[in-house]
Design a protein around this nucleic acid. Structure first.
Length: 313
RNA sequence: GGCAGCUUGCCCGAGCGGCCAAAGGGAGCGGUCUGUAAAACCGUCGGCACAGCCUACGAUGGUUCGAAUCCAUCAGCUGCCA
């Protein structure tokens, strides 16, 4: 074959993306086709964040080669732009050795940044921290005025309460002279991309999430967070915001009871899953499959033409 | 058993005679998004035949032109007294 497809698995948390990826990979491997998994999840990259991220177990990870898992300390900040580079590099390496890359992602921005025509203006820590300081001093509304004075169009596209985006816009304007708050149209930058989404009903999704969070607690999430806290988890911009981690940190700081932390993790995860659904449902290129269906791996492998279809079509 | 307090919309919680369908928060629902996206932000949020009406502030009955707000009785919860 001339080119190998890039299989992309998306869908809400707890829909079974990670294990399906392993299944698909193993199925391909059993047909003599190499396959490797690329993680596109901002939390799985962190070493030590295992229980709360529902990271595949060491045994599962050893069954199929995984990329971009356990590559950072919790004090480092993962960022989309960095992910874009790392993931694209991993994908082309995998293809280079004749294997099929299978990417698993939970957030649309990360997935699209990797797959689509998507360019990020640079960043400068000094400039950033200067505007961040301004934000702390003036508050978001006042800073929005500053932005409006410098670049009315950018300001128009950002709500006055959204301090984070205002800071970034000011940073980019200072660096490049311009800033566009508009997301580009879907347009693949990589060849042969095939996106599959796992779909499930809300009630089912909510039930899975709740069960999963309870499981995390009994698996020792609190201990895990305690351990990570000793490594400076609170200081990590991204890692400390992870669902479950954020809440347990609040519990350990005495701001929540343990029960409240667990409940907050459940509702937070539910909200996140709904947002994921929203993001992905707007991408018409995704082909949807029912989550949990035993035939999914075969359907995907056959669907991209890598194994003969068992059902015949 | 006696005394004191509490009972508000899906949840938490303010209100203490009219301006109350009832502040605020959470959840839910909808939306935004280019270097923290498991983030940040915004809208909506009792029902309907919708500038009006209906239902609603533990239950029932009263006082009042008018009550979530005052009184009485009942029910449940909490604290002190045994």
């Amino acid at each position: 074959m001339t080119s190998l497809p890039l299989i992309v698995l998306v869908g809400p948390t707890a829909s079974g993306k990670s294990s399906l990826a392993i299944e698909v990979a193993e199925l391909l491997i059993s047909h003599g086709q190499g396959a490797e998994i690329v993680n596109a999840d901002s939390m799985l990259v962190y070493r030590g964040m295992d229980i709360g991220t529902a990271k595949p177990s060491p045994a599962e990870l050893s069954r199929v080669r995984h990329h971009l898992v356990d590559i950072m300390d919790v004090t480092q900040s993962a960022s989309v732009a960095e992910f874009q580079d790392l993931a694209r590099a991993a994908i082309s390496d995998i293809r280079g050795r004749g294997s099929v890359p299978i990417m698993v992602g939970g957030s649309s921005l990360y997935v699209r940044a990797i797959l689509d025509q998507f360019e990020f203006p640079g960043t400068d820590p000094a400039v950033r921290s200067q505007w961040q300081a301004e934000l702390d001093r003036l508050g978001p509304e006042a800073l929005h005025q500053v932005l409006a004075a410098r670049h009315p169009q950018a300001a128009a596209g950002i709500l006055p309460g959204n301090g984070r985006r205002i800071v970034r816009a000011l940073e980019v304007i200072e660096l490049t002279g311009d800033f566009s708050p508009i997301l580009p149209e879907p347009d693949y930058a990589l060849p042969d991309v095939r996106q599959f989404g796992l779909q499930l009903e809300r009630a089912e999704m909510d039930a899975r999430i709740e069960a999963r969070v309870h499981q995390m607690w009994s698996d020792g999430l609190v201990d895990e967070v305690q351990r990570l806290a000793e490594q400076g988890l609170q200081g990590g911009l991204t890692a400390s915001r992870g669902l479950g981690y954020q809440q347990v940190l609040a519990y350990l700081a005495g701001e929540l009871t343990e029960d409240e932390a667990r409940e907050a993790t459940i509702t937070g995860t539910r909200r996140f899953a709904r947002k994921q659904l929203g993001w992905f449902s707007r991408d018409p290129r995704i082909q949807w499959l029912p989550a949990g269906d035993a035939n999914n791996a075969a359907l995907i492998a056959a669907g991209v033409g890598l194994i003969p279809s068992a059902v015949g079509d």
